[in-house]
Design a protein around this nucleic acid. Structure first.
Lengths: 185, 185
DNA sequence: TAATTATGTCACTTATTTGAGACATATTGC
DNA sequence: GCAATATGTCTCAAATAAGTGACATAATTA
């Protein structure tokens, strides 16, 4: 993929994250190219949106899978996945929206499958930890999953808004997530 | 305020929450009125947006202030405020966005002031609890504040998506928030 | 019932956004 | 330097959205 194309996708992700109706003019501007150039790479709005989805889903899956495999201890796997997601920043936020908003039409089947794979790995760890009595038994799996995502977003937002330093933001996220689900290390 | 006006504002809040560029056509449809009628109540898009802001800010402030005052115990105050915010549902989500997105231009000064009042009450409680060593000392106030908001949204979302029953959704939110900040009751 | 008010329908204008053609200008690799 | 490729500028047409006037119809109430 050319640098320009990558630039445009990055700009689009940044813009769409704030406003999924962002004009192509604005995206082109953010990417530092003319609108005409944007149209040369992407037939229309939909094609740009699809490229963003696929690209970001790929990156997030890759980053989180890599994080998952980096350690054998299940708790460290979860922690690494949390950190990996936070490091993805805007990319992660964008992907999260795809999943929770129907207005970003359905995700490509294959990509979704891959992602479910990462998700299912994560769910398996949590389920096991909960069965071992190391996670608060009151909480349900869907709740914990949603909470995980929202703490990641809080961390990204906290850092971006300048409220909190990068490393603190990651540390706080992990501390809070552990506490929130009553995880005993 | 007439029923129709209230209906339109409710519809607009619902639509804007998902997409701040929602067309007036869509909002009118959601409210069950014609676009022409919407324009009779609101001069233009901006006036509708402003009305939504003021109305929702009012409601949320009222609900949370009332919750704050319902009990004397500081921890119960915080819990009640959390529940009140969750009960506001879409209204709360909308207000939260106003505060975190600059694209929803600045909030009316007076309203903001009132709200800061609620916010400062909340911050004071948390600060005191932390000084008393009842909240994890590592975490900063801005982090705890952001976390509070994001757990509320997670709870609203969890309920709306059908993943979790209304009461569980509130219970989980409180359990998780307490754990996340290491609150000792 | 008559008058008033609220709302709907249709038509029209204007502004914005999108997409693409034609051609000029840079930039790159050979 | 030349050819190939990438990008910019200008232009225009189509689509969509916003705002408004004129008038019909429904609902409310004196």
């Amino acid at each position: 993929m050319t640098d320009t194309k990558i630039e445009i996708i990055a700009a689009a992700v940044k813009c769409f994250r704030l406003n999924e109706s962002a004009t192509l003019e604005k995206i082109a501007q953010e990417a530092g190219v003319s609108r005409r150039t944007l149209h040369r790479y992407f037939k229309d709005r939909q094609e740009l949106l699809d490229s963003c989805k696929n690209e970001m889903l790929d990156r997030c899956n890759k980053a989180m899978t890599e994080a998952y495999e980096r350690d054998n201890d299940p708790i460290k796997k979860v922690r690494n996945m949390l950190f990996a997601a936070i490091e993805q920043g805007a990319n992660y936020s964008f992907v999260k929206r795809i999943y929770e908003r129907s207005s970003f039409a359905e995700v490509d089947r294959n990509k979704e499958f891959e992602s479910d794979n990462v998700k299912s790995k994560w769910l398996t760890i949590i389920k096991n930890l909960q069965q071992e009595g190391r996670i608060n038994a009151e909480l349900t799996l869907p709740w914990i999953f949603n909470l995980f995502g929202s703490i990641i977003e809080t961390s990204i937002y906290a850092f971006e808004s300048g409220d909190i330093a990068r490393n603190d933001s990651k540390k706080f996220a992990w501390t809070s997530f552990k506490g929130a689900i009553g995880l005993k290390e």
